[in-house]
Every structure is written in C-alpha cells, then in structure tokens.
Design a binder for these strands. Structure first.
Lengths: 200, 200
DNA sequence: GGTAAACTACACCGTGTAGTGCAAATCGGC
DNA sequence: GCCGATTTGCACTACACGGTGTAGTTTACC
C-alpha cells in the first residue's frame, strides 16, 4: 500500500520536469529530488520511467478535458448576444491555450513524443469529445436561429481552429512569447470571420 | 577544406535521424553510420551535435520556404475561377503539410525543441514571409474584385489556418495517420468557409 | 607517381542515467 | 509504545553517449 501523498508529489514533480525538459532529457533523479522523495520510492510507485510518463500525461489530459467543458458551460451556458458570447468563449479558450504554460507545454510534449509512445494516441483522441461538446452548443444556438449552421461538428472544428490556431502557430504552442494584445487581435479576428460566415 | 559530398551525406543522414528520433535521442554514432562516414568526420565538419542540428534544420527550413512560394506561384499564378484556384491551393498546401512525412516531422521537431534552442526562433520567424507572400496574392485577387478582403495579412492567416490546422490537429502534425479522403474533406470545408466569408 | 589534405578505424575518457539491492530510519494504525 | 509497511539513503551495475587523440589509409590534384 503505497502512500498516496508521496504518489501525488511524484506526479506533480514528474509533470513539471517532463514539461520542462521533454521525455528523453528528464531524469528520474531530478524528478525524485523535486518531489522531495527518494528515487527508490519513485520506482516503487511507478515501476519505470515510461509508465511514470504515461500515467502523468493521462491524468493531466483528463483534467484539461474537464476544465474545457466547465469553461464551455460557463461562457456558452445562457446566450443572448451571440457575438459577445462567442468572442468571450474564444478569448477564454485561446487564453487557456496560449497563456497557460502548462496547457501549451502539454501540447508540445504530446506532439514531440507521440511518435515514440503510440499509447499517447488514445489521449489525443479524447480531444474529439471536447469538440463534440462545442458542436452541441453551436447546434443549440443554430436551432434558436442565432447562427446559420449546416454541420455543427464541422463548425466546431472551424471555430476551434479560428480561435486558437493562429495563436498556436505564432507562439509555437506557447514557446515563443506573444503579447496579450496580439492574442486578443488574433482571436477576435478569427471569431469575427466565423460569425461573418455563419450569420443567419 | 572538407569534402562537400561527405558534408551533404552527413546532413542528409542527420536530418533523417533527428526527424525520426528527436534531438536528445539521436546519437552522433548512428548519424555517422547512416551517412556512411566515420564519427570523426562528422565532428570535423560540424564541430558538435548542437551545431549539426541547427545547421541541418536551417537548411531544411530554407528549402521548405522556397518550395512554398514556388507552389504559391503555380496554383495562384493566373486565376479566373477563385473557388477552384483556392481549393487547389488549399489542397496542395494541406497535402504538402499532411502528406509529406518530412515536412510535418520538421514541424514536430521544431515544436519539440524550440524551448531548448532559442536559435530556432529565427527559423520560425521565416514562416511570416511565406504568409506575406500569400497575403499579396489575396490582395491581388481582391483588387480584381474576385474577393472581398479588408486586411490581406489577416486573411492570409485565416486561410492558412482553415486549410491546414484542422488536418494538423487531427494528425498531430502527421504523427497519426489520417485518410486522404478525410484530409480532402477538412481542407475543402475550411476553404469553403473562407470563401463564404469573403465573397464580394 | 608523389604530396598534402581529408578521411577512417579504433581506442579511450568522462559523464549522465535507468534501474536494483539492502540495511536502517520513519511512519501510520492499533 | 509497538509492529509492519513504507520510505530513505546510498552504493552499485550496466550501458549509452558526446567528444577527443592518433596512427594509418584514401583521395584529389599537380
């Protein structure tokens, strides 16, 4: 029966180190030190480095998906002004992506390591669910006559891309600094394009 | 005076190994072996691993930028049917991104390593130039009344994102296989959205 | 065919790292 | 306060890798 608080400390430190260094550069000794735990304990809890990595990433992805749907409810729960609501959502979405060092670092790590760890593909598939949640919201807005949408799933993909991808491209997923104003411009421009194409 | 053919062989092998393994996992011994060259020769030509990496990436980026502008001229050189031309360009653009293993692997590598090598930022900045080339083309189409565009630079960013980012998101920059049909659907849908928003 | 420069083969050093083993210290629950 | 499980500290193995030194071989060029 391992001690859960130790396990949590290890997970937290491991995530930080993996995000900072990448898988190959991250050393288990450093993780153990940063967790305030002996290296032996790390191995007792997680077996080996690969399993530690995959476990930590899986937990993080889950948390991010939950945070996303929560944000979706918050900003698109009750909509009267479509433009304002979608702009608010887009801004928060992009900010979560561009301004949360953890979130963008997870994306970078996923992109970097997915060819080395096929198991990561399943994690990534989970993003599809979040996009379907957005699609449902958009379909709802369409059925109320606030938007003109044929295919809600496609529209959700378009919206996601217009709200976040320009920022991600510019900042390479948060690795290159981009000013708040620039982020806001890019998001606003993208959402406006979406609205222009889907006005009823 | 080093032998240029050796240098080229090293560069080619190094690129292949870095793209396949990432920087940290790539070993100079393997690169030398794959180049059919002694390890000592690698060091005589490139000094150290970091310099080898940065040199090879720089050359590759340059080649990719050239290929992009060439493709731009080919598909958007003389346009009569805007929709057909933009669809053709979008398809070729996305195919180059999604179907060329090298191109997408370079993107993945860039994203993975940019936090470790600040020098890579300059390479990435070069992409801005390609976007401006596209902006010029779009501005031309707008001045001929074929498109309604206020800000050509912004429009170019939107187009690029709509044509490629959905494919990149789905495939994580080529790491996860996506069918040709799916790629075509995603690109077509994105370009159609662009056209709907910018019809004169 | 000779000469200088480039290349090869190989041994070698230092270092960093994944993972293990084990006795002693520590801690939670009774 | 006792007992069993967990954790610790540390030593240790095995190995891979970046980088160097060198003596000898190949190559380009005159």
């Amino acid at each position: 029966m391992p001690r859960p608080e130790k396990r949590a400390a290890i997970a937290k430190a491991a995530l930080a180190v993996f995000l900072r260094e990448g898988y190959a550069r991250a050393s288990v000794d450093v993780i153990a030190a940063e967790a305030g735990v002996s290296k032996r304990t790390v191995y007792n809890h997680y077996g080996d480095k690969e399993n530690l990595f995959l476990s930590v990433i899986a937990e993080t992805d889950e948390g991010m998906a939950e945070a996303f749907t929560a944000m979706l409810d918050r900003t698109l729960g009750e909509v009267t002004d479509v433009e304002a609501a979608l702009l608010a959502f887009g801004r928060e979405f992009a900010t979560a992506v561009a301004r949360s060092p953890e979130r963008s670092a997870v994306m970078r790590l996923l992109i970097a390591e997915i060819t080395h760890f096929p198991a990561l593909r399943e994690q990534w598939g989970g993003v599809g669910r979040t996009q379907r949640a957005l699609a449902d919201r958009l379909a709802d807005l369409a059925s109320r006559g606030l938007l003109a949408i044929d295919d809600p799933v496609e529209a959700a993909a378009h919206f996601g891309v217009l709200a976040t991808s320009m920022v991600n491209n510019l900042s390479l997923y948060g690795a290159v600094p981009v000013s708040d104003e620039r982020v806001d411009e890019l998001v606003t421009g993208g959402v406006r394009l979406f609205l222009r194409a889907h006005r009823p």
